[in-house]
Simulated assay, not measured.
Amino acid sequence: MPTAIIADDERLMRDQLRLRLNQVWPELEIIGEAKNGDEAVQLVAELKPDLTFLDIRMPGKTGMEAARDIGDQSAIVFVTAYDQYAVEAFERGAIDYVLKPPEPERLQLTVDRLKARLKALIEQPGSLPVNDSVTLMLSQLAEKIAAPKPKYLQWIQASIGQDLRMIPVEEILFFRSDEKYTCVQTDKFEALIRKPVRDLAEELDPALFWQIHRATLVNVNAIDGVTRDLRGRHLVMIKGKSDKLEVSRSFLHLFKQM
Rank of each mutant, 00 (worst) to 15 (best):
L208E: 11
S159D: 12
D50V: 03
M13V: 13
H234T: 08
T182N: 01
R11T: 09
V247N: 02
V79Y: 02
E179S: 15
T3C: 03
Q162V: 04
I70R: 04
N131W: 03
S127I: 13
R176M: 14
F251Y: 15
L99T: 14
L28C: 06
D178C: 09
P59N: 08
N221T: 15
N36I: 10
A34V: 04
F255A: 04
I95D: 01
A142I: 01
G71I: 03
L245E: 00
G126P: 09
K61G: 00
A7M: 05
V134W: 04
H213L: 07
L252I: 13
E202W: 03
E88H: 13
S139L: 08
V111P: 01
R198V: 13
I122P: 00
L109Y: 11
I30F: 07
L153I: 10
A89H: 04
I160C: 02
L43R: 11
K100R: 12
V169R: 09
G232A: 03
I238N: 05
V111C: 05
I212T: 08
K239S: 07
L128A: 07
E202C: 06
L254A: 02
P206K: 08
R18W: 03
Q157K: 06
Q73Y: 01
L118M: 13
K35C: 11
T3W: 08
R249F: 02
L192E: 10
I70N: 08
A146S: 14
D8G: 06
L235C: 01
K61D: 00
Q162S: 12
L28H: 08
I6D: 02
E170Y: 13
I172Q: 06
K115E: 07
F255E: 02
P104E: 08
P206C: 06
V247E: 02
L141E: 02
I95N: 04
S139W: 05
A40F: 05
H234W: 13
V87L: 11
T135S: 13
D96T: 07
K149V: 12
L54H: 10
D132Q: 14
R233Q: 08
F189N: 13
P206Q: 07
L47F: 12
W25K: 07
I95Q: 14
A146E: 07
R231T: 00
A94E: 11
K35P: 01
D8C: 08
E88K: 13
L153Q: 06
N22Q: 15
R117C: 01
S248K: 01
P129V: 11
L114A: 01
D96I: 07
V226A: 10
M237H: 09
L164K: 13
R233L: 06
I31K: 05
D224F: 07
S250R: 15
M166H: 12
S250W: 02
R92M: 10
K119Q: 12
M13T: 14
L43K: 14
S133K: 10
L164R: 12
A67E: 06
M137I: 00
L208A: 10
I223D: 03
A215N: 14
E190T: 15
I156N: 00
K35Q: 14
A75S: 05
P104M: 08
Q211G: 03
D229K: 01
T80G: 04
S139E: 14
L51G: 00
I145T: 10
I238F: 06
K48V: 08
S139Q: 14
K61T: 15
R106G: 01
L200A: 09
Q124C: 08
P206F: 05
P150Q: 14
D55S: 06
A215Q: 14
